[in-house]
Amino acid sequence: MTGVYKAIFNLAIAFFFVLTLEGIGRKITARVQRRIGPPWYQSFIDVFKALSKHPFSNGWIFDFGVLMALGGAIATAAIVPMGSTFWTPFPNTDNFFVIMYLFAVGALGMAMGMVGSGNPWASIGVTRALTQMLGYELPYLIVLASMMFYYKTASIHLLIEKQAGGWNLLVMPIGAIVAFISLLGMLGKKPFDIAIAPAEIASGPMVELSGKYLGLLHIMHVFSIFVEITLFVDVFLGGGNFWWFLLKFLIVWILAVLISSVLPRFRIEQMLKFYWGVPLGLAFLNAFFVLMGWTL
């Protein structure tokens, strides 16, 4: 039963911590653009305001899509270990591939729901999101595959223990860089927010969301950010005890926000060419080193 308590604790931390971080993120981008920016708890206000409004719904597939998206995100967030074996809700099932592909359930659900809304903006946004996934997913998986080959295991909490000697960031620096770049893609932050692209396609898939749905999707977004960054922190920065984990989480988040607030948006082909150029090359280089055994 302790696993379920840990899972719920996971979700709670995910909800509150990441929402505050989002507020802080907004503050930082504002400061970068030399303006004050909204208070740190602004995200909380947005979520609760959205949830209280009366929304429009476009048929049962629209609702089912949103629910499936949120369900998938919650399920993934529940599994992901937070920094140490103690905080792993289900030790023998946190295999990396399972998490990655369970994450896909959420994405598919959202995609299906949004296209179900019938608005062409939404469909364009979804196809862009899928193409984007094709872009950032591959280098990330190659790096992870080489790491699994090196450490002979894919379960996250074992990886954390194996990093006791030295963070993966130092053992496989190239892999870490590639992972961070694809992390940016995953987060959907500025340089890679082609799918949401407020200027071009009116916030893409979110165009039809109103009221409660917008809130739910925001929560789903929060959970997915939590999952992505926790994965990166666990696998590359060694996790550590609870507070260390939160600190590292914060640092990674601030770094991502800083980068995203400065760079303009990619076009679809540019993004794909970018991802399949340098990061993929580095990923294979890293795999080659790992195969040769020249890790640091």
């Binding site: 949103v66 629910l67 369900g71 998938g72 919650i74 399920a75 369970l102």
Partner: peptide, 10 residues
């Protein structure tokens, strides 16, 4: 887990 997640969402 997926079912629980779905239930919470619902």
């Amino acid at each position: 887990l997926f079912i629980i997640g779905f239930a919470i969402a619902y």
